[in-house]
Amino acid sequence: MVFNIGNQQAGVVNNVGHDQHVHDGQSGQVVAGQVELHGLVEDLRQAVDGARLPSAVRPEVRTELTAIEQEAARPEPDKEAMADRLSRITRLLGSAGAAITAGTGLFGAVSALAGWLGTAGRPVLHAIGL
């Protein structure tokens, strides 16, 4: 059997010619470039800017966002540091009553960036119900 497979990007790709038995699940990570990361961070900034946050929380959220942007600008961003800041943002947004639920801009932006962070972003994904 011959496989002729072009470019594939996904969390897990199984190209199987015969039987496949999977035990204990599968996981994977798509590695995206810097351009995508900057877009994800910008999407998060726009979603936060569009949310009606109380004035007491807004500066803290923006401080965390600025730190994420600075980390994203590095040649090799520290995913753990970014995930910690994203986690703080989600807690601040939640405490402010901002809905981070499916179908909202905040949910999409937070989950997309957390997904890009891979393993480091899993706690954030769990916190928002994924």
Rank of each mutant, 00 (worst) to 15 (best):
H21N: 13
L44P: 03
W116T: 09
N4F: 09
I100D: 07
D19W: 06
G121L: 11
A73E: 15
G115N: 06
V41T: 00
A109N: 05
P77C: 09
E42H: 11
G97M: 07
G28T: 10
L117G: 06
V48A: 00
A114T: 04
V2P: 14
S87M: 08
L40A: 04
S87I: 07
G115T: 13
A109G: 02
E69K: 05
A112E: 05
A73P: 07
E42N: 12
G121D: 06
R45E: 11
V12C: 08
L53Y: 11
G118Y: 02
I89C: 01
T90D: 08
L125W: 04
R74M: 05
V2N: 15
A96V: 03
E69P: 03
V13K: 09
S55M: 06
V124I: 12
S87V: 04
R91T: 09
N15Q: 12
I100T: 12
L37R: 12
P123F: 10
D78C: 03
T66E: 14
Q26F: 12
I5S: 10
S95D: 13
G108F: 00
L53V: 11
A32R: 14
V110S: 02
A127I: 03
L86D: 04
G103K: 01
M1H: 14
A72P: 12
D78R: 09
E36N: 10
L125Y: 07
Q8Y: 01
V110W: 06
R52C: 00
E36S: 07
